[in-house]
């Protein structure tokens, strides 16, 4: 069970490695793409101006240094699709990343790209992104026809569903799950919206729109409308938590945001291969704090510390038990007694 950390620059490597990262992932947007596409046509689900390395030379420097520390580096090519015009550019990029720079895996969403890259017999492995919405073991079996080494499960799956999938495909493919930071109000792979800066995320944008209920029955009493309004307010609060508690941090600068730390003992028992920390575009301090928290809890789970003690430690690390008690900051509902 490895800790997978996001990285955006070579300068972040030393601190992430020293803090306990065991795998790294990042994006790179080549100049050819930037000069050809703007607006919402993103190469890797991040704006070219925010979440990616900017040059091949920096990426090579990062990969070489990471390999010297025995850390593998994965690259996101995880747009929901690429058009026929874009595909040669993406396949060429994959070859360059794999064969020239030596990255260890490419993270892909588009089934067409997965099939194409599998046929290319790259040295780099292929990981299927959570954006592919692999929600059941039949979907994993389908994808296995096209050669992935790893499947990233969406954060919307329950622990029971994750366990069921792992049990069904154990030994056939690595499984990665979400551990820390950004949430998504929707099923990521079935959200057809953009996070373009001109409009922002749809889920948070909705919280600022006028919303009116229409009741299907004959009488829409004010008591009933209040019931719906309260639920809408709770939903908007839940979205606020998903959005990193309104993109805020504790007084000590630790990042808020959705969290699966309490589930780490379950992930160890289930046999999860990798725990993903989200946030390529996040500030270095947030990445550092996230890796430290993850490493603290993973070390305790590896040492066999009882589950309830691990959970208590996780809540203490987050420093705001009131947020943990809200129930809205958790990726997963954990049964402490199991």
């Amino acid at each position: 069970m490895k800790i997978l950390a996001p990285i955006r620059a070579y300068d972040e490597l030393e601190m992430l490695a020293a803090s306990g990262a065991e795998e790294l992932y990042c994006g790179v947007v080549p100049q050819e793409w930037i000069s050809r596409y703007g607006g919402a046509a993103w190469l890797n689900r991040r704006s070219p101006k925010g979440g990616s390395l900017e040059t091949y030379s920096e990426l090579r420097q990062l990969v070489d240094a990471a390999h010297a520390r025995t850390l593998p580096v994965f690259i996101t090519l995880n747009a929901p699709y690429y058009s026929a015009e874009q595909m040669p550019l993406v396949v060429d990029l994959a070859h360059r990343l794999s064969d020239e720079i030596g990255v260890d895996a490419l993270i892909v969403t588009d089934l067409n790209l997965l099939v194409r890259l599998n046929e290319e017999k790259l040295a780099a492995a292929l990981h299927v992104s959570s954006v592919a919405a692999t929600l059941n073991s039949e979907a994993v079996r389908f994808l296995l026809n096209f050669g992935p080494r790893r499947i990233v499960l969406p954060r919307s799956l329950t622990l029971a569903e994750i366990e069921s999938i792992v049990n069904d495909v154990r030994g056939q493919v690595e499984i990665e799950v979400f551990l820390l930071n950004d949430g998504c109000a929707f099923e990521e792979g079935f959200c057809a919206t953009t996070h373009h800066h001109s409009v922002g995320a749809f889920c948070t944008s909705l919280s600022e729109m006028r919303a009116e209920f229409e009741w299907n029955g004959p009488v829409f009493r004010s008591r009933r409308e209040n019931w719906l309004r309260r639920n809408l307010a709770d939903y908007r609060e839940w979205v606020w938590y998903l959005n990193g508690n309104g993109c805020s941090s504790t007084p000590k600068g630790l990042p808020y945001g959705p969290c699966g730390l309490c589930a780490i003992p379950d992930f160890q028992r289930i046999g999860i291969d990798s725990l993903k920390i989200v946030g390529r575009e996040a500030p270095a301090l947030k990445k550092l704090a996230s890796v430290k928290m993850a490493r603290d809890i993973v070390d305790r789970a590896r040492a066999g510390v009882p589950k309830l003690h691990v959970i208590e430690r996780a809540i203490a690390l987050r420093e705001t038990p009131e947020h943990c008690r809200s129930g809205y900051m958790c990726y997963y509902k954990v049964d402490g007694a199991r």
Partner: peptide, 26 residues
């Protein structure tokens, strides 16, 4: 008004009007 963020209008609009079905391989 293609690409409200700036230039590159034609390529971006063309990509947005398509999908992976655009690829014969798919």
């Amino acid at each position: 008004a293609p690409d409200p963020g700036g230039a590159l209008a034609g390529n971006t609009l063309a990509a947005l009007q398509r999908s992976n079905l655009d690829n014969e391989s798919y």
